[in-house]
């Protein structure tokens, strides 16, 4: 209030002039603000931007995207669809590369802690074959709930501080294929000067068919740009809830075990990930959520009576809960406390 330009105008300003109680309160607030400002004051450091930029660019850039990209969305649509796209991307990537199988249809979720080096190692797989969309996902956003069989989840009660402004997002069902090629794998490895484990004969030419969505979601928060703001000033969503039909994968020629065995032999895969993959019981029933250990945390939780995963980012502000129930993958995510995310998840309908 002390330094809020909008707090002391009109009737409020007039009241402040005449009310001794409010005047005294204002004085306390102003004293606190001035004291804190004085104590926090430090001289602005002089910085060498060019030198700092050169140092940052010398750091290797990880490529966690695994080489798969959704069709480019117009920038204005990205924030509202971020989670749906992220969910679908994660599903495609994780399903295609971490699990595999003759027929994959997950009924539960499990977090898999991975390192950036694992991500880089796994990203090589994208070059070991050909990725194609059979049916590209279509995205739509609207200010009202979409009509159709798949209805967006209903949040019973929003935590304090979360905006009630809602934007709805939809993603159509998408189907993609990935065809392994021993020739492409060898060429990709040769280009990077690496030696590869030999691809099993039946894996060469094997095709994974991945089906994700449809998905629906709600984004809470005012996504409109504030008046007079530049293009970079769009608001971040505070809360996103989404559900998607569980993804499926079918595979020709190759078994789950063969894909797992091949993945653990790739150069760069950590011992921890090898152990985790080795400990997977029936990978055709579990959706694995990769959690980069450098950036996030995860723990197993019970959501609506089923096993779920609670995720948190290392900044301590963002959190998410993911679970599978009734043939749907459900996600609650946002810049909210993990306990709030879990509370919303347990009361989501």
């Amino acid at each position: 209030m002390f330094d809020d330009p909008d707090a002391r105008v009109g009737a409020d300003a007039a009241h402040l002039e005449t009310c001794s109680e409010c005047k005294a309160n204002f004085q306390v607030i102003a004293d606190d603000a001035r004291a804190v400002a004085t104590l926090l004051a430090v001289p602005d450091p002089r910085v060498d931007v060019d030198g700092a930029f050169a140092r940052v660019m010398r750091e290797p850039k990880a490529q966690p995207a695994l080489g798969l990209r959704f069709p480019i969305l117009r920038p204005a649509r990205r924030p509202a669809l971020a989670l749906v796209a992220a969910l679908a991307t994660a599903a495609v990537v994780v399903v295609a590369f971490a699990a595999g199988g003759f027929f994959f249809q997950p009924t539960k979720v499990q977090a898999v802690p991975i390192t950036l080096s694992d991500l880089q190692a796994l990203s090589q797989l994208a070059d070991y074959g050909t990725f194609n969309w059979t049916k590209e996902p279509q995205f739509q956003i609207s200010p009202t709930a979409p009509e159709g069989d798949l209805q967006p989840p209903v949040v019973s009660k929003l935590p304090a501080g979360v905006s009630t402004t809602v934007t709805y997002g939809q993603m159509s069902q998408a189907v993609a294929t990935f065809k392994f090629s021993a020739e492409k794998a060898a060429a990709a490895a040769a280009a990077q000067g690496k030696s590869l484990p030999k691809m099993p004969a039946n894996m060469d030419g094997a095709t994974l068919t991945i089906t994700v969505g449809p998905a629906v979601g709600e984004v809470y928060g005012n996504l409109e740009q504030p008046s007079g703001a530049s293009g970079n000033d769009i608001n971040l969503p505070q809360l996103i809830v989404a559900k998607s039909i569980s993804p499926t994968v079918t595979a020709t020629q190759v078994s789950v075990t063969e894909i797992e065995d091949y993945i653990v032999q790739l150069p760069g895969i950590s011992d921890e990930l090898k152990k985790t993959i080795g400990a997977i019981g029936d990978p055709t029933k579990t959706l694995f959520i990769p959690v980069p250990v450098e950036y996030g945390t995860s723990k197993a939780v019970n959501v609506q009576g089923v096993d779920g995963v609670a995720l948190g980012d290392n900044t301590g502000v963002g959190s998410a809960v993911v679970w599978i129930k009734g043939g749907h993958v459900w996600v609650v995510a946002g810049s909210i406390k993990q306990s709030d995310a879990l509370d919303i998840a347990n009361n989501l309908k």
Partner: peptide, 24 residues
């Protein structure tokens, strides 16, 4: 205020109150 609100993912209307409480 708008930049702080965006950075922390909260409504701009809450910043004044959050700031006052934090200072106290």
């Amino acid at each position: 205020y708008a930049e702080v609100a965006q950075a922390l993912g909260v409504g701009i209307g809450q910043i004044g109150t959050l700031l006052r409480r934090a200072e106290a």
